[in-house]
Amino acid sequence: MGKLSEMPNIGKVVEEQLIKAGVDTPEKLIETGSEEAWIKLKAIDPSSCLMKLYGLEGAVRGIKKKDLPQDVKDKLKEFYSNYK
């Protein structure tokens, strides 16, 4: 599939963090899922925020985070709030 940074919402910094967390390919990110990948990133970068979680979900779906359906955003926001 290519490099993580070729996925929507994944820049070089997040790509490096994902690789460090053991999520080193787009296929692995899709398999891991946004929530689990975000937990791994949170362990590396405690400042990982809700927007990063949205970005990961968008990458998994192949869309920009701004295009996520509202119900998906609501579910992710609940997950994020409960994780804190």
Rank of each mutant, 00 (worst) to 15 (best):
K77A: 09
L68Y: 00
T25H: 01
N82P: 08
I39E: 04
D71G: 12
D45Q: 12
I19E: 12
D24L: 11
P8R: 14
N82R: 15
K73A: 09
D45W: 10
L76C: 06
L29Q: 00
E16T: 09
L4I: 04
E35S: 06
G55R: 11
F79R: 13
K40L: 15
G58Y: 09
M7W: 00
S48F: 03
L29F: 01
P8G: 13
Q70G: 05
I30R: 08
M51S: 10
V13P: 07
P8M: 12
W38E: 04
L56N: 08
F79V: 14
W38D: 11
D45P: 01
L18G: 06
L4T: 00
P8I: 14
L41K: 11
E31C: 03
C49D: 15
I10C: 02
S81N: 12
N82H: 12
A59C: 10
E57T: 10
M51H: 11
S48N: 04
D24W: 11
I44V: 02
S5I: 04
K42T: 04
I39Y: 07
V60I: 11
G11Y: 10
E27G: 04
C49W: 12
D45N: 12
S5T: 02
S34E: 02
I10L: 05
D24V: 06
M1Y: 07
V60E: 10
K52N: 15
K65N: 03
M51P: 03
E35G: 06
Q70N: 11
Q70K: 14
P8E: 14
G22E: 01
T32A: 04
K84I: 13
L53N: 12
Y83V: 12
Y83K: 13
P26D: 12
A37Q: 01
I63C: 01
D45H: 08
K42R: 07
K42N: 01
E15M: 01
K52P: 04
K65A: 01
M51R: 14
K66M: 15
P8Y: 12
M1D: 07
E57H: 01
D45K: 15
G33V: 00
G55C: 08
Y80L: 14
P26M: 11
L18C: 08
G62T: 10
N9Y: 06
K42C: 02
K42Q: 07
T32K: 06
I39W: 03
N9S: 09
L50P: 05
K64S: 14
K73S: 06
D24Q: 10
K65H: 04
L41S: 06
S81D: 15
K12E: 08
L4W: 03
P69H: 05
S34G: 07
D67L: 04
K64H: 06
L29E: 02
T25G: 00
I10V: 10
S34M: 01
Q17T: 03
V13I: 15
K28W: 01
P46N: 05
K66N: 13
K52C: 12
E6L: 07
Q70S: 15
E57G: 08
I19Y: 05
